[in-house]
Every structure is written in C-alpha cells, then in structure tokens.
Write a protein that binds this DNA or RNA. Structure first.
Ligand SMILES: [Mn+2]
Ligand SMILES: [Mn+2]
Ligand SMILES: [Mn+2]
Ligand SMILES: [Mn+2]
Lengths: 219, 219
DNA sequence: AATATATTTTAGACTAGTCTAAAAATATAT
DNA sequence: ATATATTTTTAGACTAGTCTAAAATATATT
C-alpha cells in the first residue's frame, strides 16, 4: 500500500489545510514533519506521481480526492486506537498520542472494523475530535473556543485545541475535562483572563491563552 | 530502537535455532525471510556489529543474550496480540498471524503490559504456543506430536506444528481444536494413518502427516 | 589429494528517504 | 522597476535494505 512516511505526509497535509487554509507550503510541511524543505519537495513529487496530491512547483499542495481518503482513513485509525487505549487499557488522554501514531499504520480492515465495534462505534476520540467514518466522512463539530464567549455564558467542554501532554495534564489538574460545564463568572478586561465556575462548584482563574485552547459548545 | 527488519531477522534466527538446531545458516535464513543470501549476509554483519548475534564468516549464526532477549520480546508481543485478536475481537485462529506480524513491532512497554493485564495474563497463545514473560523467560511445553502415540492412548490437544491458515481451517472443520480429547482407536500399519475419537464422540481418520502436526499431552 | 559442487561472501547497483549547499523562482521593499 | 530577502527546487551525497553476478570458501566425490 503506502509507506508509513507517505501516510504521515498525507495526514500532515490534511491537518495543515484544515487549520491554516487552502494550500500547504513546502516550509509549513517541513516544519510539521520535522524535516527539511528539500526532503519535502522530494516527497511531494512522489505523492504527486501517485495522484495523491495536486502539486505544481512553487505553488503549494492540496490533496486529491484519493489523497484525502487515505488521510481520513489514517486519522480514523489514529482516533479509534486512542479511544481504545483510554477506554480499554486505562491510558490517560495525555499518554495516547505516540502509541496511536504507530498503531494508525497497521494495515487490516477487519482489525479496525472490530476495534470500532468493540468500542461501540464512538463518534469522538478522547480529545473530543470527531472520528471519520469508514467511508471517509467527517462530521466537523460546532464547538468554539471558550475565549470567544461572554460573561455569564454557560457551556460544556467538548475538546481541546492544543493536544500537548503538558496542556492536557494541566487541564486534568484543574478539573477541566470533557463533559464538564463551564460558566464564565467574569472576564478581566486588562488581559482577557477568565474567572470560571466548573460544574457549578469550583471557581478558578485561567489565562486567555488557556481559554483559547479549550473547545466548548453553548448550553 | 531496532528496525522492523532487524526484529524480523532476530525472530527468524530464534525460531530456526529452536526448530533446526544449534546454528543457523545463511541459506536457511534467506529461505525463511523470503530474500536472497546476499541480503542476509549484509544484515548479519549489521546485527553482529550491534552485538545481537554471534557471527563469523561461513560459520553460521547464533543469538547473543542481548539478541535472544529482543527476539523473545517480539515473540511475546506477537503472541499476546494474537490472543487479543481472538479473545476480544472475534478473530479466528487462522486469521491472526498477518496482523500480529505487524502489531509485534509496536514499541510501547505500557501498551503490552496493559494488553497482558487486559487478557488476564495468558500463558499460551491461540495456537497453544507459550507466551514469553516480560523478562524473557519461555516455559517450553511438554507436548508431543500425536503421531508418536500408540493405540488406545488418550491425550488432550494442546497445539499445532503447522500454523498455516489452510491447516488450521482443516482442523476447525474436523473438530480438532485446542482442549479437545483425542483417543487413538486404531493405527493403520501400512501408512501410519490414525483412526481417532474426539471428545468421546466423533470418530475420524487422519493421515500420519496430519498427526505429525498436532501437539498433544498425554492424559 | 584433486576435482566438482554447493554455500557464502563481495562487488556494484538500485530505491526510499534523508541531508547540505547552491541555484532558481517568488515575494517584498525601496 | 530594480534590488533584496525569502521560499522552493535541484544537485549531489548518505544510510538501510534489497538485488544480480562474480569471487571465495567449504563440503562432497572420486
Ligand atoms: Mn504516524
Ligand atoms: Mn486525539
Ligand atoms: Mn513482523
Ligand atoms: Mn501463534
């Protein structure tokens, strides 16, 4: 099929387009893949030959339909494996990423179908990210970052923007986990930091930087 | 750590020594790895440089203590994953090999510990093969091939020699699965084929070739 | 003991993926 | 519009793993 490296490039292109915008630049990809621009150019030629990306020299890249299908399938596998690790093997949400990064490349349709079934067909992964369907559909969530809300707004935490272990551990320690209710008690005008009430009980202060990395849905 | 290829070579060396005898030849390894002798020689140099094997030109190879530890760890992971697939994901014993061949290379101590725990620390895999411990001990079973037994001997099926999907499917169809009791009703002198009674119920005939690939333990 | 055959290693080449350094193209600033 | 800076691509080299063909060594046969 495709090599691990090809799969990782396709996933990176998908995610960069999702976040940043319409086309992905060579440098952005090099940054994300922790490699050099020259190496990226080589890979882009290869992916282009295989009709997985649309690529013209100096013009950046987008995924073809075929390439997007591959990317979404890797993302599906990654998120299902993360869910498996958390739900069945007692991993914490900050421990799953590196292992899922490997497991996502295991090639077996039956395996991933059975994992999906075993988990009772989850819709989102442990970080609140939606799991693409087997035929490559991804329902994008209506969540917004907490920093966009106003005083007295009440919302439910549904995801995170930053997926780093450090941030996830900080959230755990603060009682900010998926499903919790967050009410904005006050917003400090000076630095846009927030005073919030979690689950109608615990009051705490979070910086605007933190609020920008918490996804919620209005109650 | 070590590449997939290195791990597969070490496992192959381990298994060849286990079956065939004291040292492994270049050609035997080439055969097993479905590659050419020249490629094997290249890899042997590399594994020798890494102190994973004892290798002298033209003299065959053995594993060092370090190499054996790596091999046993891969075998442990392979067998635990096979067990997981059968026990938790409804795979049949003839369907697990190729997937386990990939999963055995996933690198995460926590993952394999948790899988072991999740399965309640199994001692053998779905084919009756013993699972090495985390610190590299392997309890070799006292099973023998059915063809060595005599008329009227009663035994319990504990494993298989041939692991091919074809053979395993044949066994399934014949009701010859692990744990079943096998009584030898008669042995045909001419071709050493057997008439056996499975679980005190079903009588069937099997060739000596089949009997040589069924492992049992005397009751 | 000499020769023939089989096994194993070396030599040299190829692909995937990576790198550095230099050249080419594009974007930005005067 | 031209010069400067930035981005991207090319050129050439490196490693891991593989191959074929040829050379070296070991084993078997006479
Ligand atoms: Mn990956
Ligand atoms: Mn995730
Ligand atoms: Mn393998
Ligand atoms: Mn097995």
């Amino acid at each position: 099929m495709h090599s691990f490296t090809e799969e990782n490039y396709l996933k990176a292109i998908y995610k960069l387009i999702e976040q940043e915008g319409d086309v992905v630049t060579t440098n952005a990809l090099a940054e994300r893949m922790s490699t050099k621009a020259a190496s990226v150019t080589d890979m882009l030629k290869k992916l282009s030959d295989k009709k997985l990306i649309n690529y013209q020299k100096y013009q950046g890249v987008t995924l073809t339909t075929k390439g997007e299908k591959v990317a979404l399938n890797i993302i599906r596998k990654h998120r299902l494996w993360e869910m498996f690790l958390v739900e069945k093997l007692d991993f914490k949400w900050d421990e799953v990423h590196d292992v899922a990064e490997q497991l996502e490349h295991i090639n077996s349709d039956k395996l991933i179908e059975q994992i999906d079934k075993f988990l009772n067909f989850p819709k989102v992964d442990p970080h609140g990210d939606p799991i693409p369907t087997a035929n490559g559909k991804l329902i994008s969530s209506k969540s917004q970052v907490l920093s966009k809300f106003k005083k007295n707004d009440v919302s439910i935490m549904t995801g995170v923007v930053d997926h780093s272990a450090a941030f996830l551990q900080f959230l755990d320690k603060s009682g900010l986990v998926l499903g919790n209710e967050i009410k904005i008690k006050d917003i400090v005008e000076f630095d846009r930091s927030l005073q919030i009430i979690v689950n109608k009980k615990d009051t705490l202060f979070i910086s605007n930087d933190v609020a920008k990395n918490i996804l919620v849905i209005k109650k």
